[in-house]
Nucleic acid binder design. Sequence first.
DNA 1: GCACTTTTGTCGAGCATTGGCATAAGTTGC
DNA 2: GCAACTTATGCCAATGCTCGACAAAAGTGC
Lengths: 393, 393
Amino acid sequence: MRTSEIFDLLRDGRARTRSELARESGLARSSVAMHIDTLMGVGYVAPVGDAASTGGRPASLFALNPSARVVVGVDVGATHVIVELADLSGDGIAASRAELDVAEGPEAVLGWVAGAARALVAQQGRELDEVVAVGIGLPGPVEHATGRPISPPIMPGWHRFDVAGWLRERLGCPVLVDNDVNIMALGEQRTAWPETADLVLVKVATGIGAGIISGGRLQRGARGTAGDLGHVRVPGSTAPCRCGNEGCLEAVAAGPAIAARLRELGVDVASTGEVVELAAQGSPEAAQALRAAGRDIGEVLAMVVNLVNPSVIIVAGRLAGAAKELHAGISEVVYRRSLPLATEHLQIAASATKGDAGVRGAVVLAIEHALSPDVLDAELVAPGRPPQPVVMR
Amino acid sequence: MRTSEIFDLLRDGRARTRSELARESGLARSSVAMHIDTLMGVGYVAPVGDAASTGGRPASLFALNPSARVVVGVDVGATHVIVELADLSGDGIAASRAELDVAEGPEAVLGWVAGAARALVAQQGRELDEVVAVGIGLPGPVEHATGRPISPPIMPGWHRFDVAGWLRERLGCPVLVDNDVNIMALGEQRTAWPETADLVLVKVATGIGAGIISGGRLQRGARGTAGDLGHVRVPGSTAPCRCGNEGCLEAVAAGPAIAARLRELGVDVASTGEVVELAAQGSPEAAQALRAAGRDIGEVLAMVVNLVNPSVIIVAGRLAGAAKELHAGISEVVYRRSLPLATEHLQIAASATKGDAGVRGAVVLAIEHALSPDVLDAELVAPGRPPQPVVMR
DNA sequence: GCACTTTTGTCGAGCATTGGCATAAGTTGC
DNA sequence: GCAACTTATGCCAATGCTCGACAAAAGTGC
């Protein structure tokens, strides 16, 4: 059963003829035709008109049918939750957002998520069993394999809570859980940098974290805590950090630390949000503080560049969007401090996803699970939607 | 053709019966029997006696036949070259070593390598076409995909030299090229930590570098320079480095830097080798300097732990073998400076390969290529050794 | 030596895959 | 507008991989 191999070729969304698929897959034209029929039977592939004739009968084109099924992507932040319904190409169909504190606990937050997901499905005239997977990002360390958060600092009550199981119970489909920065990296890479196999995304907001994609694969590490930049020591700093150590990047360059720097300069700011506002207004003090923070982040990123050797670094998070100064500070130090060989073809860019890298990544996580060869082949053998006749023996 | 699937199951060296293979592969016993026959035909698998009877006819056991073919592993250091002939289980059969400076240039070094490889093959009564692959590690940045070194600092004349092509031309088989620290990590992980998917190996000698294995895969990064720890900045240091920056780890904790520290303490040492000797003699000054260097390395490794979240760190290289103090200094800082979640199940260990991690890794690189499903299936379709009859048409 | 157990080799049936061929559906030239 | 040509498609018999069954082989235990 190699139907999934043919389907994999169509995953990029490009339409192809049977002959093209035969050439790319190495199978015979007639075999490809059979698999295409199978895939059209479950709706995953649809004909999309004819190719231009090259002198004879025009070949019919086939492509992934994005609306065959839907997935749900969830981005849980410290104080908000976004639930999005998306099609199989990853395009959003509809979304809900709530201002909700993760500290309310898993059942409150996930209860709202489940309700919002069901409402979106109904509102779009879909059935719940058309949802083939759910992806969810949480603001803390997550053991991806088991779908449980592990000692998350800002998520009281979530430690080892079975997020995947709880949601699966209520939505009736596989649930993939990951850290929020990891899914942002995934979303950014898959949507904006599909040709780039080695990408690092840094999120700078109330905290600082990174998602690492290497060789096209999300790097989670042994316990799922890879990419934790926030508590790396910054050379030349001794600021005390809530983690107990001193000189941590987060204690120097995250939102609250920048606010503190500004207060030292005599500017009255209390929160990360006010820093963003001030920068937007063009305050020179804010610009200076952001540039200094950028330099500190750059100091740590220079190390990441030497260590991971990415070809793209994305700077994301509320503070990244606020001002060019953060980006400038980062670039300045990274290019100076990293090895020339590693920076030669390195690009440092802003997020191209307008703030929804998280949801995009959650959607990608869900889609890539649902359309993986194993899951797909199982679906083709025993289609999930029509109820199975009970076999007696 | 799923013969390679059956073979993959036997790759771990354990002997199995046909029934066991059928259960593990999901194929029928009769199909397994057919594939086993195919594999025995090319010699890759051999019967190794009968299993204990469980009351009936005892099942015959089959296992990977390590001596079916051979591979060559090459470790090129700054001033030495080792060439080893190994069987398919990775065990060395015979080896040659030469004191040779890489600065002599690629043709001098690789010429000796090719000669030594041919000599070893002949000496063992083998034919050259029994060599199925060559793995080689070089002391500098390598673009693995093309098999060429890229601007290697200590290898004049090697820049962009086609190492893989040059050797392939003379030895007639695929050549896999990688950085020396990368192959050390590979060698250490595959031989000593097969259950561990996330491992970092740090080599401390005249320079400092790291090889990163994550999710069981060697991480090379976009340009193959991943793991370059040597020029990461150490907090609190401003020592000038040959790379032009200051405070680099290599300028503080590598062999020459430790020698310099000792000279400041009034101890007369010139080279890395003398530091090792002094430590072996139990010099308290050497112990102190090594512990301090270990702390600096630990400072950087703490960051690596947060970033890639390995479950094992291996400390290797000449200075690691010299004294426990280096290891102690590293452990002390890593456990203090890394996040508790990342260090909870972290082990820091010495190399278990007695100094030949490099050759082991080179051998592994060669074997894993030669026995990969794609290469193997191609071999089974058109066996390389018996000359092919020319088909006329 | 006999009954019982388990593996092995062989063989026919089943199913995916293939390549060939007649047919369908366009284009090009007159 | 029609004939000649080109290219894709659907259908089909042949092929080859896979499976399950069965009889023979090779052990154990009494």
